[in-house]
Amino acid sequence: MKIKNLMTEDLITIDKDQNLTDALKLMHKHKISRLPVLNANHEHKKELVGIISERDIADKIGSAKFEKKPISRIHVSSVMVKDIITVPEDMDLIDVAKLMFDNGIGSVPVMDDENNLVGIVSKADFLTLANGKAFDKLYVKDVMSKNITSVSPDERVVHARRLMIDAKVGRLPVIENDKLVGMITYKDLIRAFLDIKKNVPENHQKVHLKELLVDEIMTPNPLSANEYESVSKVDNLMIETGFNGIPTINDNNYVVGIITQTDILGLLIELES
């Protein structure tokens, strides 16, 4: 199967000269976490110049460089990733899956023969392929990541942000006494940063952010999966909820791992091979 048969063709894009407020509004409205960034060239054609994601925004607006700047004054071009990997629309989908897996990227723009952007494919799109007997017979424990990056509820948000950036993960289970008590994502980080910028006087924002704790912004009582549930069941759960990772617990409700879209993508590649 070619990637053009799996990609999303209904593209939501943003111009490089728009600001982060515009980007976040588009992401929220369409329930997506990344946007292709376009620019009009000398022929007045829109060309792909980058990708901006929630991760990029959380990284930048939580940094010292942008801490005093309103997001309405931060251009997409100053935050987006410029060195992007693209794929041709006739590329085999498993080859695209390998490319994404090997490079640790969540999505790739799809181009036609004239190098025009015609679609985008994400790890979430590949979830639709993880169904059938093979996936019904596999347990979550056989696929999940056991070495998870996590935080405790009394740790500082700035520490959680640094962990997420360094580990290149989109979410952190919040664990207390080996049990799952919450989840923190880039959405939570962005929401917290914007709340501080809006409601705290500028000369107090830095201190307020430094003192902010994980349990003040995390999502409590998050969704989890038992390690003996089938991969297909959890895969369908990800499709329904839009979550890209679900913590895994054992029968005693202790956290033993996390299953992510990346884990399922790796499984698809392994089964195809």
Score class of each variant (00 low, 15 high):
E67L: 15
K68W: 04
H42M: 15
K187H: 09
S53T: 07
R55C: 05
D154P: 01
I259D: 07
P173V: 02
K29C: 04
V110W: 06
F193Y: 14
D15R: 12
P88W: 11
V234T: 02
I148V: 14
K98C: 03
R162N: 12
S232T: 12
A192V: 02
I3W: 02
S53Q: 07
I105V: 14
L93K: 12
F101C: 10
A225E: 03
M164I: 01
G245S: 13
A40F: 08
V234F: 02
V96H: 02
M7S: 08
M7N: 00
D10W: 13
I3S: 05
K141T: 07
I94R: 14
E43I: 03
V96K: 05
S72R: 11
N236M: 13
Y228P: 00
L6Q: 07
L212R: 10
M183E: 08
H75I: 12
I165D: 05
L213M: 09
K187F: 07
E43F: 13
N19R: 08
I71R: 06
N39G: 06
H75M: 15
M27Q: 10
S53R: 03
N244C: 03
N253K: 15
A192N: 09
S232P: 00
D102F: 09
I264V: 13
L20K: 13
P88Y: 13
K168T: 02
H75V: 08
V143P: 01
E67K: 15
D251N: 15
D90T: 09
V181P: 01
N226K: 13
E227Y: 07
I3F: 08
D235M: 15
I148N: 02
R73L: 11
R191P: 00
R34A: 11
K179M: 10
V200S: 10
L20Q: 04
T262P: 02
A192T: 06
V207W: 04
N5T: 03
S107C: 15
V256N: 11
S273E: 14
G119T: 02
I165R: 04
P247K: 11
D178F: 03
N103L: 15
L26F: 06
E202R: 14
R55M: 13
P88N: 14
K123I: 06
K98V: 00
R161K: 15
H204N: 09
A64P: 01
S145I: 10
A225T: 05
K123P: 00
M100W: 00
F243S: 01
K68F: 07
P109N: 09
D90A: 14
I71F: 10
T262N: 04
T21N: 09
L189S: 07
